[in-house]
Design a protein around this nucleic acid. Structure first.
Lengths: 212, 212
DNA sequence: TTGACGCCAGACCGATCGGTCGGTACGGTC
DNA sequence: GACCGTACCGACCGATCGGTCTGGCGTCAA
């Protein structure tokens, strides 16, 4: 684990901002604290980003694109829904577990009323577009499984929402942070166990016969 | 639906505060807006509550106790885990669906670092105690089912976290709000469908054979 | 040497933050 | 009438908010 490049100021800001927004939400982060922790003056932030809102959406975009890259090989694979769906969820969990702040940040952003001022509407729509794109790939797998009568005929949107809630919340809540502080080896073991359980739940819900 | 009593100022504040905190989070709510929407002066808020933090924790306590009351009859019933567990989840969903703001408020509070100033530590611990108490009743049912070999031997804490994430996130995200605005009848139908799906997912995960 | 430019710090702005102040109106109790 | 506690208000406080302005420091090309 060697850092090849000294991170640029812009990268440093984005990194610190992700941690702070994940901890305290958009309104809970002051630009003074963000600047201090980035090793910069407050006004320097405005050299790299036009406003606090632009910075926030840029952080969101970075996180979402990182997840999107993780999911890309799974989507491209030729396997059927029964293998593709757990692979998709496992890739998502890996992406969330790798950057623990991402899950918290996304959880906040996903259920929030996107009430942004109009001057950064295009950025907000771009972020929302990435989210919809990601969710769309999951829904396509579920729909395909239902069409092939491999999965139960559940509501696709509800299944997606359940999956998102289960995974993102799971890795946003506190204990995963403690696991990370316990060292990378323990963390990896804990994540593997969690991943197995969550995937099992989601697959079980899609394949079990609903005769309760 | 007749309101028997004119709500007291204190009740009005709590009601408005729940909606605002659910919408914008703790840091995102200004006491001026809260006072205006409650029909009071800002300084009057401090007559009823010692600080913004005390008010926030009081709102959380109210919401949690309302849910606790909903779950009580389920817990007291004599049925086995196979019937008790879906009943528990359905009761939780009913409680969340009845007060749409509660899910958002809880979702925020549950995964947040409880970083409160020390002067309201006791209130924070009381709130946390209620949460642990509620989760404990769910974990007891799961554990009982595992002991009786009705459920798969999953991690109880992970199963709980998955359940919480799936249910609370499900009803915190936006669409349920639109359903409510569509009128009580449509909302009731939508909630019933959602409830069936979510419960099915959770039961499926506990009963299906994990041989993927 | 000069000028242009990227990057950054410090002083500063109006607005808003949570919270405190002195004071008013009112109903009950001796 | 004197005196209380409850409920409420407008004015005000220091601090902090997001954001702007001015100007300095280094680098590189001319």
């Amino acid at each position: 684990m060697v850092e090849r490049h000294e991170p640029t100021s812009r990268e440093k800001i984005l990194e610190v901002a992700e941690a702070l927004f994940a901890r305290s939400g958009f309104a809970g982060v002051g630009l003074r604290e963000l600047a201090d922790r980035s090793g910069l003056g407050k006004s320097s932030l405005f050299h790299h980003f036009r406003s606090k809102g632009h910075l926030y959406l840029e952080v969101l975009r970075t996180v979402l694109e990182r997840i999107q890259e993780r999911l890309a090989p799974v989507i491209r694979s030729q396997s059927g829904p029964a293998e593709k769906l757990p692979a998709w969820v496992e890739a998502l969990i890996d992406a969330l577990a790798e950057h623990p702040n991402s899950a918290r940040l996304l959880l906040r952003a996903l259920f929030e009323d996107d009430d942004f001022p109009e001057d950064l509407e295009p950025q907000a729509q771009e972020v929302e577009g990435i989210v919809m794109s990601i969710l769309g790939t999951y829904q396509a797998i579920v729909q395909q499984g239902i069409d092939l009568e491999i999965f139960q005929p559940v509501s696709v949107t509800d299944a997606t929402q359940t999956m998102i809630g289960a995974t993102v919340y799971h890795f946003a809540s506190g204990e995963i942070g403690e696991a990370v502080t316990g060292g990378p080896i323990f963390a990896a073991a804990a994540i593997q166990r969690r991943r197995r359980e969550v995937v099992h739940f989601l697959i079980g819900g899609l394949t079990a016969d609903p005769t309760h």
